[in-house]
Simulated scan of single mutants.
Amino acid sequence: MQSMSPAPESKRTRGRPRGSRPALSLPAVVDASVALLDEAGQDALTFRALAARMETGVGAIYHYVTGRDELLDRATNAILADVLSGVDVREDPFEVLRTLSATLFDTLQAHEWAGAYLLRDTTMQPNSLRIFEAMGQQFMRMQLTSAQCFNAASGLLSFVVGSGAEIREMPAAFLEEGVSQEEHLQEFADAWLALDAHEFPFLHTIARGFAQHDDREQFLAGVDIYLAGVRAQLG
């Protein structure tokens, strides 16, 4: 009697081991979206690319979100989750606002795509609403009127988000050519110095130190100027 040969390996056990795919859940979908956005920017976020990253089908992604806009809003909300964690709201309100502004700025610098979507849909972004609320509460502590609080909080948040979204590292093309950040900025400074000094006195004034300026220090100086204006209104 011939010995029986081993049963052929089932298709289920061939190739990838069972259970090795990323677990599919709403938090996992959001985390994968953030990673994809950080790596390749907002144009790269498609359901097909996300499904490939998570090793699943496009239909499975739609089980958790309705579309790309929801993905972007939920991803934005996710990266804002820790902004308030390091802020002691019981400190001096001006210091709280400065710390909160710096933390939000750093977060937007780390996730360059997020500035365009912050506060776009607060039903999907409760963390952005909490940040706005935290700013507003600090202005309330200064005994400002409701209109002043609204204007001050809205203006500061707009400045932070605008700065965080607009201030960028130099284009990759320059890095590939071996041009440093300072050399890149110096080209602008030299062009400004070549302009007529009587017509462009401001540009001539700032040009000599422009290439060496620090973006974050410049941003915080802007926050200080903004808050100094609020302080002046208090009398």
Rank of each mutant, 00 (worst) to 15 (best):
L119S: 04
F105Q: 01
S128A: 15
T122E: 13
G57Y: 07
T66P: 00
T56S: 09
M135Y: 10
P93M: 12
R90T: 07
D69Q: 12
Q125L: 07
R74D: 04
A134V: 11
D106N: 12
L119C: 09
E70A: 07
V96N: 05
R68C: 01
T123W: 10
V65S: 02
E112T: 15
F94W: 07
Q125M: 07
A114F: 14
N127I: 00
L72A: 04
T66Y: 07
D82S: 15
L129R: 14
L118G: 01
A102G: 08
E70I: 11
F139D: 01
W113V: 12
H63D: 03
Q109K: 14
Y62F: 15
L129A: 15
T123S: 13
R130Q: 10
E91A: 15
R120G: 03
E112R: 15
D121C: 03
L84G: 09
A116P: 00
V65I: 15
T56V: 14
T107N: 04
A110V: 10
Q125T: 02
E95N: 08
D121K: 10
F139C: 09
Y62N: 01
L97C: 09
T56P: 00
R68M: 03
V96F: 08
G86A: 08
T122N: 12
E95A: 15
E133T: 09
Y62L: 14
M135D: 00
T99R: 12
G59Q: 02
I79Y: 04
V87I: 14
R98Y: 08
V96H: 03
T123M: 06
E91P: 00
L97M: 15
L104Q: 04
T99I: 10
T76L: 06
E91Y: 07
P93S: 10
W113K: 02
I131N: 01
M140S: 13
G59E: 00
P93D: 04
Y64L: 11
D88F: 13
V89A: 14
D69R: 14
G115W: 05
T123L: 07
F105L: 12
P93I: 14
D69W: 04
E91R: 14
A134H: 06
F139V: 11
L71E: 06
R130N: 09
